[in-house]
């Protein structure tokens, strides 16, 4: 079903950009990653099983694309240089209990986590994917997803006053 893939892909673009940004911390690079991943997805559209989660499949392609990119660049450190780009102004409609101050504190804490912890945090807590789906996207065992996620969340609670 080619038509369906195209539509879902376009609808998913904002979330793909968000994930790409969490991975690489640079909006121009994130956009390159998303476009490259879209091309790859279309070229491999046959490997998507209709009825399974399209977003999880797409996140995985995007992440593999990112890994390939890193490998090509041989600059694992580049993600570190490109921080400080998140615009973190709270939308007052979201999370009425939490003040903007608390939120930006949490956002800063998330930004300071290692990349491998940021990505599991996004996939599980914001994208609401299961551990299993996340493990598949990352290509690691469920146990690894759990230990990274638990570490990230403990860290978050330790470093924010909201705890």
């Amino acid at each position: 079903m080619p038509a369906a893939i195209g539509q879902e892909l376009v609808a998913l673009l904002p979330r793909l950009r968000r994930f790409a940004f969490v991975l690489c911390r640079s909006q121009p690079l994130a956009d390159d990653l998303v476009q490259g991943a879209c091309e790859r997805a279309l070229a491999n559209a046959d490997s998507w099983t209709p009825g399974t989660k399209f977003d999880a499949w797409m996140f995985r392609i995007l992440r593999n694309y990112w890994i390939d990119h890193l490998r090509r660049m041989r600059t694992e450190g580049m993600a570190e240089d490109l921080s400080q780009q998140t615009q973190l102004v709270g939308d007052p409609g979201e999370g009425p209990i939490l003040s903007r101050l608390v939120l930006s504190e949490v956002q800063r804490a998330i930004d300071n986590l290692p990349q491998e912890q940021r990505e599991v945090l996004l996939l599980v807590c914001a994208e609401e994917l299961s551990y299993r789906e996340t493990a598949e996207i990352l290509g690691v065992p469920i146990g690894t997803v759990m230990s990274r996620l638990a570490r990230a969340r403990k860290r978050l609670m330790e470093t924010t006053a909201a705890a």
Partner: peptide
């Protein structure tokens, strides 16, 4: 921590997809 994370991510607005990018992806599709 889950609630906080979800709120933090959804508080940062997902910016609109740039028209050039959208056009490029639509072309591919």
């Amino acid at each position: 921590s889950r609630r906080l994370t979800r709120s933090a991510f959804s508080a940062a607005p997902m910016p609109e997809v740039p028209p050039r990018m959208l056009a490029a992806v639509l072309d591919r599709v």
